[in-house]
Design a protein around this nucleic acid. Structure first.
Length: 379
DNA sequence: GAAGAGATAAACAGAG
DNA sequence: CCTCTGTTTATCTCTT
């Protein structure tokens, strides 16, 4: 689909800061919430691997009569050049994350009504937190999950998990070695993690690699999110890993009501690293800033390939569950309706508008909506 | 108080 | 032989 840049509505809204807000109200009160980071945004179908694309096109979404995205009513605009057309399925994004995942900052709160943060993000001070002496509030499962998720290939050996934990939580650097036993115990006992045999020919180091089972990822993320929310609201957060943090993954804005991120696929939370999550009633919005990304479609491909190698074990899962790109959320909040990608879809859109700021994201959005339009036309 | 989750300790076997 | 890894069992604490 060709993105139209001459149909910019006049009622563009921005929220909470100077960053472009990628939700806009249209004449039909439909908001589109899309991750706008060039690298976090869904790749265009042409940049998807054939396997992934096939999965997308065979998604149950494509059969749903409730998906009525009309490409003719979709408007996009761009304020950036299409300078980087890198294949988004590559792992180059990892390098952009750099080494500044830490230190991390707790989640600031925001009042959606005023749409301004109640308090600015506060960096944890070494004096107040004494991370080396305070035990992190996260369970070993959460620690392992974060370590693996923070790894480039979402695969880590036990030693790598140790190192991540020590680097992220200095407490464990000085703690006795019993926690390593606990880590191994957790890996073995928890269904959330799966052991993957290393390639013998290229194997360096002992042991296997460990990954997160996709079907347990949502639960792990939820636990992590709740733990973080609890401890951040109790001013007891020691060192929040980047998965949920603002430093590289954007700032999550948690408001005083229902957080519909519960309804969101964790993939979205993970794939909108530079997002702000504004929560009020049943609304979650994402605001982009520049930064690192987590291309979950890459993980999906990787995991698929992993599972093919894994003794032919058949995993029954939504092929899009980890893509974070094609699923759609549609919410009714007050007099407005909000479309959130990804998620469960219940689309009945008369018109959709995307206020896009990045050309690549715009292209991807167009491709995405092309898909939706194509599904619609197939109905 | 019971049940469950999580943490911790320990024993053991296998691999490098 | 030693260390690391992975599994298993047991026990304890804490929360619900």
């Amino acid at each position: 689909m060709e993105a139209s840049s001459d149909t910019i509505p006049s009622h563009t809204t921005t929220v909470a800061g100077s960053q472009p807000f990628y939700s806009s109200q249209t004449s039909s009160n439909v908001h589109v919430l899309l991750p706008l980071s060039p690298l976090s945004f869904p790749p265009s179908p042409t940049s998807l691997s054939p396997t992934t694309l096939e999965s997308i096109q065979s998604s149950p979404l494509s059969n749903s009569s409730s998906h009525c995205l009309d490409e003719h009513n979709v408007h996009c605009r761009s304020s950036a050049t299409t300078s980087d057309q890198d294949d988004l399925t590559c792992l180059s994004w990892l390098h952009q994350r750099g080494s500044n995942l830490l230190p991390l900052q707790p989640l600031p709160k925001i009042n959606l009504l005023s749409q301004q943060p109640e308090t600015p993000p506060v960096l944890a001070s070494a004096e107040s937190l004494s991370p080396s002496s305070n035990k992190p509030p996260y369970s070993f499962s959460s620690l392992i999950f974060m370590a693996i998720e923070d790894s480039p290939n979402k695969l880590l050996p036990v030693k790598g998990i140790y190192e991540w934990i020590v680097n992220s939580f200095p407490y464990y650097g000085t703690a006795s070695g019993g926690w390593r036993n606990s880590v191994r115990h957790n890996l073995s006992l928890s269904k959330s993690f799966r052991r993957i045999q290393r390639d013998k020919s290229q194997s360096v180091g002992k042991g296997s690699l460990w990954c997160v089972c996709p079907e347990y990822r949502a639960a792990l993320l939820e636990v992590l999110r709740k733990t973080h929310h609890y401890h951040s609201t109790n001013s007891n957060l020691v060192n929040m890993p980047a998965l949920l943090e603002g430093a590289d993954y954007g700032t999550s804005m948690v408001c005083d009501s229902v957080d519909i991120s519960d309804s969101l696929s964790p993939s979205l939370l993970m794939s909108t690293p530079s997002s702000q999550i504004l929560t009020s009633d049943n609304l979650t919005l994402f605001e982009n800033s520049s930064g690192a990304v987590t291309p979950d479609h890459e993980e999906l491909v990787t995991m698929d390939s992993v599972e093919e190698e894994e003794a032919g074990e058949e995993m029954e899962k939504d092929p899009l569950s980890d893509s974070g790109y094609i699923e759609l959320h549609y919410y009714q909040c007050h007099q407005y309706q909000y479309l959130v990608l990804p998620g469960e879809a219940e689309l009945d859109l008369e018109s959709v508008e995307i206020l896009q700021l990045d050309a690549e994201a715009q292209e991807a959005a167009g491709s995405l909506l092309d898909l939706a339009g194509g599904w619609h036309q197939c109905l």
